[in-house]
């Protein structure tokens, strides 16, 4: 009995089927009356456990590249405070993982978990797609994030320059570890 328990305990750790990338793309788009802002980050890491459907993301805030250098500096210094909160993270699960079959055609999936930005953690549930491609798995998701939910204060003077809700797009190409 004890042995079975130990086996059960270790099995999920030993039989890991991990897929990973260190160069995932995370971009965001802010549409506001005064201007549209786009920033792209190609340094996102992501890991997916094919056994359990567990998923984790880590995004270095300084990795977001803006077309305007001053904007990028303000993003880090004034809004995301990247010196204090250098990374955004997500950890969660793909819902109904055991019933899903990931094939070459994009499969709609729902993801539930904890998104942490600017030191604030919130439970989110968003949808995306997964597809097998080559030897790996491609993941794609688009969802909205409200800066106010993560305690990111936007002063009145730039209210018309920054959207209340920012559209975030995630695009990762995972390879087996």
């Amino acid at each position: 009995m004890k042995k079975i328990f130990l086996f059960l305990c270790c099995a999920p750790l030993l039989a890991r089927d991990l897929y990973i990338t260190r160069s995932g793309a995370v971009s965001f788009y802010s549409h506001a009356p005064m201007e549209d802002i786009v920033a792209v980050n190609k340094q996102a890491s992501c890991m997916l456990d094919l056994e359990t459907g567990s998923l984790a993301f880590q995004v270095p805030i300084r990795g977001f590249i803006f077309p305007n250098a001053l904007m990028q500096e303000h993003f880090n210094e004034n809004y995301l405070e990247s010196h204090q909160f250098p990374k955004a993270t997500f950890k969660g699960n793909i819902d109904h993982w055991l019933e899903l079959k990931i094939g070459p055609d994009p499969q709609d999936v729902a993801v539930t978990g904890t998104l942490t930005i600017h030191g604030v953690s919130r439970e989110i549930s968003e949808s995306g797609t997964l597809a097998r491609a080559g030897g790996g798995i491609n993941g794609l998701a688009t969802f909205e994030v409200a800066p106010a939910d993560y305690d990111i204060r936007i002063p009145k003077i730039v209210r018309n320059n920054i959207a209340r809700k920012i559209q975030v797009t995630v695009n990762v190409k995972l390879q087996q570890k």
Binding site: L18, C46, D49, S54, L55, A56, Q58, K91, G92, G113
Partner: peptide, 10 residues
């Protein structure tokens, strides 16, 4: 295991 994945990334 979720936390562990994040630690691995970290």
């Amino acid at each position: 295991s979720q936390d562990e994945l994040l630690d691995l990334l970290n």
